[in-house]
Amino acid sequence: MPSITFIHHDSRAETVSANDGDSAMYTALLHGIDGITGECGGGAVCATCHVYVDDNWLGKVGAVGADEDELLEGVVSERLPNSRLSCQIKITEALDGLVLRLPERQV
């Protein structure tokens, strides 16, 4: 199972294992990671699963979709070049070791 490390805004790190095919958001909720809200449950509606992808992984998580790009305009914490919605990052073996940083706020 691929592992994902979530780094909280206060630098605390939590590493969890993910099911192949789940989204990063779903993995976070499954493991009770505070800092991912996921109000819409993965429907790409709410922009409350915002993450900053670690630079080393930016090339591997795929591109931002057009709808996601518009949603990212609505995130509460600052949008940065490495901002993504974690519901749109599908976990595969190729992402084993992925590092995602959490913003200060989601809502």
Binding site: V45, C46, A47, D67, E70, L71, E73, G74, V75
Partner: peptide
Amino acid sequence: NKVLSPAVMK
């Protein structure tokens, strides 16, 4: 979705 987006809510 676009008419009722997070950016509009802001």
